[in-house]
Nucleic acid binder design. Structure first.
Length: 468
RNA sequence: GUCCCUAUCGUCUAGCCCGGCCUAGGACAUCGCCCUUUCAAGGCGGUAACGCGGGUUCGAAUCCCGCUGGGGACGCCA
């Protein structure tokens, strides 16, 4: 098992699992599953001031919702501080790192000065050879070689060269003794035997720094693959300004996890002209080579379309199950109310191709479930005029005489009534639709009436006829 | 300011590595038509792109260079 592929998703718990993070997790997961490798979840919580337990839980929840299961972890870096400290000591002992006594304030001031004078805000390395001050607080900096160049052979972007003198002596341990990202990421990836680092290309510039640390320890770096970023409609980096960015917000808006996954994977990855993929297809077809190099704009409209496709393609029973919580959340049914599953599935079936989200579906279900409906004012004005009311009265009488009440039988009754009154079917169907569903748009009226049932149908018609 | 990445319809992309099959394909959105008891779904069709300038070549969306645009990084964040 020496050639086993091992990848990781390493979010920092300083926020919810967002769209960008989810896509990174997804690509790692797909890569692992495609190659029969391992997918590891690691929580990068070295910034103890910003990391919270709640966010760790939120990230785990998001991953589970997307069905991105991991094989090892979640590991937490805060549980591994002793390990990092030992490695820092090692570098210190070998003269590959040094104590820096500059204060955060001094550093910030020099940075601002440099920036305002148009100079690169690079640390000048002034503490490299400074004398030791055991009494003063210090950070530990990595002594970055200033000659030569470091080459990153990226799986996605290709070969990239960096001049080492562009890189500064980064802090690997804070004055409070906690290690920093660029250091722990290297230690952990080695310790966890990660073979491929797949992450956002905002990390591309960190890569040479990290490679130099691998070298300092005489470790062989894993392979790197940097994914292009996701942007908002204005081409700026995706953020809250662009609307919902947290994965769980999409759950709340009635999106199916598989639809989100499908959408996300197509942001930067393509398999010919195929748009809709099952999980198995994704795992089978996924390949780093098919990942594009440029940033992609997040397009909520296409996601919405895809979600609609997933709702259509899913089984009615499955969707009925999924919509249940939304019926409760939106107050359409009480939490303690029980609905007949078979009946609900039938109702859902009529609405699947008319709903882009579970929220929409739940809202439409309202006229199947409730006793009465609220009639849209415009619809009423247009379709419930006196002439139409007369027709509805005829309809009501005809329906009352029916013994069965199936869509097929209902259609026969409607058609013969139309013939008898010498009017078009639509002249009965549309007013009936308004009276029974409250709106001008609904699934086929015969199916609707069958599902609403004789009792409620007659009540609703009666109410309209009597002008109540 | 320095460094890095990147560039095909409004958007996601195929094609590019291995130049001719590209009068550039698919999808979302949009427009029109068909189907139709409404709305959808579906079907058919339309509008719409190789950023610009130089090369290389018989031939360039495809290779090279420059420019421009966009993104990212430069933190005791990750």
């Amino acid at each position: 098992m020496n050639n086993e592929i091992r990848v990781r998703f390493a979010p920092s718990p300083t926020g919810h699992l967002h769209i960008g993070g989810a896509r990174t997790a997804l690509f790692n997961w797909l890569f692992a599953r495609h190659n029969n490798g391992k997918f590891i979840l690691r929580i990068e919580d070295t910034d103890t001031t910003r990391s919270t337990e709640e966010y760790i839980e939120a990230i785990v929840q998001g991953m589970k919702w997307l069905k991105l299961d991991w094989d090892e972890g979640p590991f937490r870096q805060t549980a591994r501080f002793d390990i990092y400290r030992n490695y820092v000591e090692k570098l210190l002992g070998e003269g590959k790192a040094y104590r820096c006594y500059c204060t955060a304030e001094e550093l910030e001031q020099r940075r601002q000065e440099a920036l305002s004078q148009g100079r690169p805000p690079k640390y000048d390395g002034r503490c490299r050879d400074a004398e030791q001050h055991p009494d003063r607080p210090f950070t530990v900096r990595f002594k970055t070689p200033q000659e030569g160049r470091t080459i990153v052979n990226d799986l996605i972007k290709g070969v990239i060269e960096f001049e080492n003198n562009q890189l500064d002596d980064m802090i690997i341990m804070r004055s409070d003794g906690t290690p920093t990202y660029n250091f722990v990421v290297v230690v952990d990836d080695i310790d966890m035997r990660i073979t491929h680092i797949i992450r956002g290309d905002d990390h591309l510039n960190n890569t040479p720094k990290q490679i130099l640390i691998y070298k300092a320890f005489d470790w062989t770096p894993p392979a790197f693959g940097h994914l292009p970023m996701i942007l908002g409609a204005d081409k700026a980096r995706l953020s809250k300004r662009h609307g919902a960015t947290s994965v769980m917000a999409y759950e709340e808006m009635g999106y199916l996890p598989d639809a989100l996954v499908n959408y996300l994977v197509r942001l930067g990855w393509a398999y010919g002209d195929q748009e809709v993929f099952s999980r198995d297809e994704l795992v089978n077809f996924f390949d780093l080579e098919n990942i594009g190099k440029s940033a992609a704009v997040f397009n909520p409209e296409k996601l919405l379309w895809l979600n609609g496709q997933y709702i259509i393609d899913s089984g009615a029973a499955e969707i009925a199950e999924a919509v249940l919580p939304f019926l409760v959340r939106t107050g359409i049914v009480r939490a303690d109310e029980s609905l007949d599953k078979a009946w609900l599935s039938k109702a859902v079936k009529t609405l699947q191709e008319r709903s882009k989200t579970l929220i929409e579906l739940a809202a439409s279900l309202k006229y199947y479930i409730h006793e009465h409906v609220e009639i849209d004012a415009k619809a009423k004005e247009k379709f419930l005029k006196p002439d139409n009311i007369k027709i509805l009265a005829e309809l009501k009488a005809a329906l009352e005489n029916m013994s069965g009440f199936t869509a097929v039988e209902l259609e026969k009754v409607f058609v013969s009534l139309a013939e008898r009154l010498s009017i078009k079917l639509g002249n009965i169907a549309q007013p009936a639709r308004v009276a029974i569903t409250g709106s001008t748009a609904s699934p086929g009226i015969f199916e609707v009436i069958e599902l609403v049932g004789k009792d409620k149908t007659l009540k609703r018609l009666g109410k309209v006829i009597e002008g109540r």
